[in-house]
Amino acid sequence: MDTFLQVLASGLMLGALFAIVSIGLTLIFGIVKVVNFAHGEFLMIGMYLVYLITAKLGLHPLVTVVAVAPLLFLVGVATQRLIIQPLMSARDDHIQIFATVGLSTALINLALLIFGADIANTPPGGLRMPIQIGPARVLLGQVIILLASAALVIGLQLFLQRTQTGRAIRAVAQNRAAAQLMGINVNRIYMLAFGIGAACVGFAAAMVAPLYPTSPTIGTYFVLTAFVVVVLGGLGSIGGAFAGAMIIGLIDSFAGFYIGSDLREVAVFGVFLLILILKPSGLFSERLNLSHVSP
């Protein structure tokens, strides 16, 4: 029983990690309708920023969020303005996907050039301290990730539901043309949404960096799972991404222990495929909505 609870706890912590990384991705996907393959590299940039600030200024990694999230917001806005927007009216949506793949490769190689292939270690600042909850043992930093991802989900939901800007963002997500006719500056909303999505990754970076060594390819470790989580939860559904992340985390952890660590990806992707076949729009999305112009 103790072992079961430990596996359960590890699964929840892993789910929270996937959640905090995926929320920004689902936001960008749901609103701008762009599959951002550079999402993992945004995380990588964020983690290097956290590393640089903590190593040079001696600040606690969690404090860096006040600088890293706004900086990533700017990275997101710049990406939308300079790369995605010129391609927005392209006849084929796939062109934007290729652009983000290109951005991803460019950012990885830029990081290799600046930081080299070696890992960079953010000082953990006490976040690696194990804490005992009943029979299960987890890290303080993992618990903080769980709380922070829950707070992020609630905060974003409130923002989208209750504020005028949030309503405008949802209007654009529902129907770009109609929103424009209602006097909403669609390009501005897209930049804002992309920026917020990227800022979410910056927020995540401050919590992930103390627990995982940073390297130019760290983003590729997360990005595939992030896509699975986002599709599973329903594209654009923030609460769905959180739930999807928890499901993936738990499957990963239980399969890793009870089936074998070489088969955990088989389990994760098997369940993923099964859910897609049974409910193609994802667990928490009403219908599939991939186009800029809704039906």
Binding site: V7, S215, I218, S253, G256, F257, S261
Partner: peptide, 27 residues
């Protein structure tokens, strides 16, 4: 490219492994 090895650690711990041989990259 894994971000979690806790289930593998648990498996080794449960099996009472004395000597672990790991062939791995850096991360």
């Amino acid at each position: 490219a894994t971000v979690d090895m806790s289930s593998l650690v648990l498996e080794l711990k449960q099996a009472g492994v004395d000597v672990v041989l790991q062939t791995s990259y850096q991360n």
